[in-house]
């Protein structure tokens, strides 16, 4: 019987196919868990075997792993640097991104989809080293000429990052704004509001959760960005006095120092602890986004 034989083959096919794709799905879980396990396992070493207290690391500004007499591993400078630079970039980027999202959906969808969206896609494609390199060759000399000093600064980092995270925030808030039901706009127009009144009183509040998600994602991307920031921020290990003073970030110190240190030394372990802090913070951002999403679903119900 030919037909029967074939149906057995189908069964084997079916079974193998399902198993393979399930393994692919599981592989993502395994990869994620092993990344977290490996980085945290290595990052905890300096607290378990070394004599650094986690509290001291998070609150001290004294980072001198190379000092022969008094080594100390305070990471506050890097945490503050990363935080300031990503918040600054998000502050600049969000209003522009929101403007783009509104423009693409309500002001001129045609111009938006033919010009603005492709441009944002290209922005997203530009590699971070190129952004960093542009920062070094154009922005830093410009700041030096305008404001004096060295040019490498927190401000330069903020400006470079704000361009980098613009497409992320813009495309997600674009989706959020698009998701607002058309009846809301019609209702608002029907009550005699102008387009601007409808946008800022109806559309933006209705898309609030999506926009918030976009902002947090932009913040997360800014926080984890390494090379572009490292190239323009100056990398001096001290807290910034002003917007226009150089400082360091978590990602920057990891990029520069990991290759200078030997595996197993206290300095190296401290760097892995910084990597762990970075990982935990980026995970926190994901949890915040999930919370926003949940709240959005509850509101709908």
């Amino acid at each position: 019987m030919k037909g029967q034989k074939k149906s057995i083959n189908y069964f084997v096919n079916e079974y193998i196919g399902k198993t393979i794709v399930t393994i692919c799905g599981l592989l993502i879980v395994v990869a994620t868990i092993s990344i977290i396990a490996f980085i945290c396992g290595k990052g905890l070493q300096s607290f378990l075997h070394g004599n650094i207290s986690p509290w001291e690391m998070l609150t001290s500004t004294d980072w001198s792993p190379n000092d022969p007499k008094d080594k100390s591993y305070g990471a506050l400078i890097f945490i503050v640097g990363s935080t300031l630079v990503s918040i600054g970039a998000t502050l600049i980027s969000t209003p522009i991104a929101l403007g783009i999202a509104i423009f693409n959906n309500y002001i001129s969808p045609k111009f938006g989809s033919t010009f603005v969206k492709p441009v944002l896609e290209l922005f997203l494609g530009i590699p971070s080293v190129v952004y960093g390199f542009l920062g070094v060759t154009i922005l830093v000399p410009f700041l030096r000429n305008q404001l004096g000093g060295v040019g490498f600064s927190l401000l330069a980092g903020i400006i470079v990052l704000s361009v980098m995270i613009l497409p992320t925030i813009a495309s997600i808030s674009d989706d959020a704004v698009k998701g607002v039901p058309f009846e809301f706009l019609e209702g608002s127009y029907g009550l005699g509001s102008t387009r601007w009144q409808a946008i800022h009183r109806i559309i933006i509040p209705a898309a609030k959760n999506g926009i918030l998600t976009a902002i947090v994602l932009g913040l997360a991307r800014a926080f984890g960005e390494a090379l572009a920031v490292q190239m323009v921020i100056g990398n001096t290990v001290k807290l910034p006095d002003s917007l226009y003073s150089p400082t360091s970030t978590l990602t920057g110190i990891l990029t520069m120092d990991m290759s200078n240190t030997l595996n197993g030394t206290a300095w190296n372990d401290a760097l892995w602890s910084l990597a762990m802090i970075l990982l935990i913070i980026s995970f926190l951002f994901i949890l915040i986004i999930r919370m926003i999403g949940k709240r959005g679903m509850q509101n709908e119900q």
């Binding site: 993502i28 990344i35 994602l217 984890g224 960005e225 390494a226 990597a275 990982l279 980026s282 994901i286």
Partner: peptide, 15 residues
């Protein structure tokens, strides 16, 4: 897991 993986800073993945 997918969301976490997508948001990992590339330097962390490199490490």
């Amino acid at each position: 897991c997918i969301e976490t993986m997508a948001s990992l800073p590339s330097i962390v993945v490199g490490l």
